[in-house]
């Protein structure tokens, strides 16, 4: 434990979906720089509990950056200042002594605030339900090697499929658009022969669902790619648009 820093935190607190929220101010002393951001909040919550205050609600699970459960906005940037990093993997060594950190939940109309920093991202499920799958029942698959997929195609499909569904793309988008999330799934499947069968119906249905859920339209700010913990490219959004044009023209 080499170094410690002091921090001023300004944290959004909101009782439930319908109540008004506001900022609460906490000062943190001697935060070890080797711990993660969520471990820092764990310490704060311990202190709050001990002083009889309800701890701050925030979501997290795997704390390895893969489950997509955690996430909030630190000083106006989703998942904080480090690229390709979820807040659970963000370590305090990236902050300076005396920093003031404003912590807000992911804000978007379809992401209802459950409490404090916890939001409900169930609307992502609805988008996937609209076609983010290959329509095949268990047991019907042909031998795995009967479908040939070039190494590069497989790699590109993987790049799209790597999405963890954390919602940072929506949170960081000035329009609260879910284009990156939606297009990552569309793009993953359209790059594979298994997924191409249903491409036309899928793209139309998923795009419509994305709009119905109340997400905004993508106007190419590219902020989503910058905050995406998996670095998912806006190329996927272009793929989605091309696919949509194709589905209309055909």
């Amino acid at each position: 434990m080499s170094d410690v820093i002091n921090l001023n935190l300004q944290v959004w607190r909101q009782e439930n979906e319908n109540s008004d929220g506001d900022f609460h101010y906490y000062s943190m002393k001697d935060v070890p720089v080797d711990i993660s951001f969520l471990e820092m909040l764990d310490i704060l919550n311990e202190n709050l509990t001990k002083s009889g205050v309800e701890p701050i609600s925030f979501d997290s699970d795997c704390r390895e950056g893969i489950c997509g459960t955690c996430g909030f906005v630190i000083n106006g940037v989703a998942h904080g200042p480090m690229a390709r990093t979820t807040v659970c993997q963000l370590h305090m060594r990236h902050f300076k002594d005396g920093d003031t950190l404003v912590i807000e939940p992911f804000r978007a109309t379809p992401f209802k605030i459950v409490r404090d920093l916890v939001v409900d991202r169930g609307s992502f499920d609805k988008i996937i339900q609209a076609g983010g799958y290959v329509s095949i029942n268990t047991g019907n698959g042909p031998d795995a090697n009967s479908i040939l997929i070039g190494k590069e195609d497989a790699e590109e499909a993987f790049d799209s499929a790597a999405c963890i569904g954390c919602g940072a793309c929506v949170a960081s988008c000035p329009n609260a658009s879910a284009a990156l999330f939606t297009s990552a799934k569309i793009s993953h499947l359209l790059q594979l022969p298994q997924g191409q069968v249903e491409e036309r119906a899928r793209v139309k249905s998923m795009v419509d669902k994305m709009d119905d859920e109340g997400f905004g339209a993508c106007s190419n700010h590219g902020e989503c790619e910058a905050v995406c913990p998996k670095g998912i490219s806006i190329k996927n959004i272009a793929n989605m648009r091309r696919s949509l044009i194709k589905s209309i023209v055909k």
């Binding site: 690229a83 804000r107 978007a108 000035p174 609260a176 700010h221 902020e223 670095g231």
Partner: peptide, 21 residues
């Protein structure tokens, strides 16, 4: 787009890196 974020952020910023914002 405006309606898609009814409660606004107190602080908004630029992520930098690959962002084109």
């Amino acid at each position: 787009n405006y309606k898609s974020r009814e409660s606004r952020y107190a602080v908004s910023n630029f992520a930098g890196g690959k962002s084109k914002k």
